[in-house]
Design a protein around this nucleic acid. Sequence first.
DNA 1: GTGAAAGCGCTAACAA
DNA 2: TTGTTAGCGCTTTCAC
Lengths: 328, 328
Amino acid sequence: MTIKEVAKLAGTSPATISRVINNSGYVKKEVREKVEKIIEETGYRPNAFAKALHQKKSSTIGVILPKINASSSGDTVSGITEIASKKGYSILLGNTSHSQEKEIEFLNLFKEKQVDGIILVATIITERHKTIIDKLNIPLVIVGQDSKGIAPCVVFDEEKAAYDMAAYMIESGKEKLAFIGVDESDIAVGGGRKAGYKKALKKNNILLKKEYIENGAFTVESGYEACKKIWENNNNKPQGIFASTDKMAIGAINYLLDIGLDVPKDVAVSGIGGGFLSKYYKPKITTLFYDYKKSGIKSAKLLFDLIDKKEVEQRVVIEHKLIKQESA
Amino acid sequence: MTIKEVAKLAGTSPATISRVINNSGYVKKEVREKVEKIIEETGYRPNAFAKALHQKKSSTIGVILPKINASSSGDTVSGITEIASKKGYSILLGNTSHSQEKEIEFLNLFKEKQVDGIILVATIITERHKTIIDKLNIPLVIVGQDSKGIAPCVVFDEEKAAYDMAAYMIESGKEKLAFIGVDESDIAVGGGRKAGYKKALKKNNILLKKEYIENGAFTVESGYEACKKIWENNNNKPQGIFASTDKMAIGAINYLLDIGLDVPKDVAVSGIGGGFLSKYYKPKITTLFYDYKKSGIKSAKLLFDLIDKKEVEQRVVIEHKLIKQESA
DNA sequence: GTGAAAGCGCTAACAA
DNA sequence: TTGTTAGCGCTTTCAC
């Protein structure tokens, strides 16, 4: 069904149908009603492509994510949809499964699909990204990583967050504090959080022990293994373990329980994230709450300001919150 | 940048550019190379709308979800993206936040956006849905609810699943088995699972006790409250609690622990879902594993078959798996 | 108030 | 091998 066919049925011209649909220009009341009736009956819907082609505006934004089935992604997207929906925008979703190649593909694909803007939830930002994003010439916001001037970004202050948590643990007497991180190619989570941990030690005049630091890979299992390594490689056992993510914190706790220790009595454990997990796990995990939904909302607002050619902040920091619970 | 401009730069016609881009028809090697170079330099991307307008095919499918930030949704979508990506399709996302109104809006919006097919992850299917879906005239697959012939659907056998779990608990001696369900307007989860529970009791000649049944609302807190009610309203305490969802099972366990009971020693508790939660919670939750990713994959395959006008099953059941863990 | 016609960027049939 | 041309379905002047 096209606008032409509707026009024929209504005994009028396409222009009039367009006026009715978009509530633009004058249409006699009877004509309008007749047209509306026909639209209702036929279930006619205007072709958004033809419209977009003409108006050079798709009312769609693209969202690129490393992993849609992660609770942080879900929360971020839910924040984005909330704002986009209000603004009358649709969302085109790109799930990269952590593949950089796919990330690039989606960037290009979204350009073809004429999205009015892009939100890139990133894990790594390379020179290649910069080149491509520059060529793209589409409003773009980066979430989760510092953008080095490529585009406005929405981030958590990873270093400050880790510092806060490490400092809290040290203050509560866990001076022998071990750390479970992730690879530093992820600058924000890998680099930032580790830096915060180190800074807190320094500030408290505690000597950094290499043997107290291990890397995991975001999973519960990797947290378990990292904790095991720390435990087995040190005769001088730590009093506390600070894991970069809640999942890894759970892995660590599981290891400690498995070798017969009590958390937090024997060893305190903390994480970062503050999602569902930390709230209902036993013991409840002392963690930093990262409001991913808020970061989604903020990034969408930023993007729409960009689309509307308003001035925007180049770097928005979403504050974190220390949640003192049972595990530390 | 349009195909015309590229043609001008390359000193050739739009048709030739189109041939190069789509690898269709003959193009002299030198011309092809020159065109490719210009495309590379300018970062030109063909306008997908113009193409779609011509071909009457958007290479996009719409996915409508009640709540994107739920782990089942994330898994379902990840399954869908996996297949869609392989097929060269993009995904338009509709997050309804459980609003029926929005569900209808997305259905219409997606029609305007010319999607080639729609996957509707549903909680409730009404007559209104039927009317609209019929008018839509777009290939559509329903996930999570029986579709009553409206469209092909992908479901779990909720009744059988609940029956299996209830039977398992009864067999392991928990004849006094209470049940935490959800409202039956959700036919699959609310109706189906409750029916399975009842069936298992009947099969084992156990009298149904109304006081042993309470409804929650999918959340941990509601599970806690439902369990509390069951506990307080019955002098003859149940030996086991079967919650319709893992979250509610956790709520129930939390309540039992709070009043000083041991799970599973004093009371056994089980759930349904089998996601992240059940695996890492202490005690690990005895549950039914629902493979949401698989249901996403299957629904996408079904949809593409529908789009390709192949014969498809009207009802695909994704099998569940009983995971015997610590809580029961 | 309404209609005719041009044009958005692309593809595909047809000619050359 | 390549170019010309006619739309795809819609919006938007510009006439009437």
